[in-house]
């Protein structure tokens, strides 16, 4: 993908990048000087990547230059935070976790060897560890249906987020 790509980026509270500690400005282009996935570059999400990288703040970001799309992220040489997705908050995070719990109950709740995952997901969500709950939901799906199940559950999580947050997949504009 080339041109300006609209994508999304999860950040910790205060617009802090969770792995590098970089404090993101709003509205200013940040140039990473090239792409080296996981090392250099601006890392962001298309909608289907979102459930893997949950964090406190969700931002819409414009990506510039040649954008590399990988299985779990987008990487670009530069990016600019455009606006915060205000509807992503603690309440919606919990609702997201409860949706993961419902799907897990439907998927494995009646299977004796996997039904314990329902309690696991519930405990994590109620305890405020929603990303762990979402992961456990995907793991339960994987144990029932293989890697296809894992991807299906992550896909359901992404679809839930897209619908509730009114997001569209990353597009070139």
């Amino acid at each position: 993908m080339a041109g300006i790509v609209i994508a999304y980026k999860f950040l910790s509270s205060g617009r802090i990048a969770p792995f590098t500690g970089f404090g993101w400005p709003v509205g200013e282009w940040v140039d990473a000087g090239g792409i080296d996935p996981c090392r250099h570059g601006v890392h962001a999400c298309s909608v289907h990547h979102l459930p893997i990288w949950l964090d406190t703040e969700l931002w819409e970001i414009e990506l510039g230059g040649e954008v590399l799309e990988q299985a779990r992220k987008l990487v670009a040489p530069r990016g600019r935070l455009v606006r915060r997705v205000e509807s992503w908050n603690a309440v919606l995070l919990r609702e997201f976790g409860l949706a993961c719990l419902r799907r897990t109950r439907e998927r494995v709740g009646s299977l004796p060897i996997l039904s314990g995952y329902v309690a696991d997901v519930g405990r994590h969500v109620v305890g405020g560890r929603v990303p762990l709950g979402a992961f456990a939901a995907a793991r339960a799906a994987e144990l029932r249906d293989g890697s296809r199940g894992y991807e299906q559950e992550r896909g359901s999580q992404a679809a839930w987020l897209a619908e509730r947050l009114g997001l569209e997949r990353a597009d070139v504009v």
């Binding site: 969770p18 792995f19 080296d36 996935p37 996981c38 090392r39 893997i52 990288w53 949950l54 964090d55 779990r72 992220k73 560890r129 990303p131 762990l132 979402a134 992961f135």
Partner: peptide, 15 residues
């Protein structure tokens, strides 16, 4: 890069 991604993916959900 792959191991780094897996590592960071784990950090997202593991306090």
């Amino acid at each position: 890069p792959l191991d780094r991604e897996r590592f960071e993916e784990h950090l997202v959900f593991c306090d």
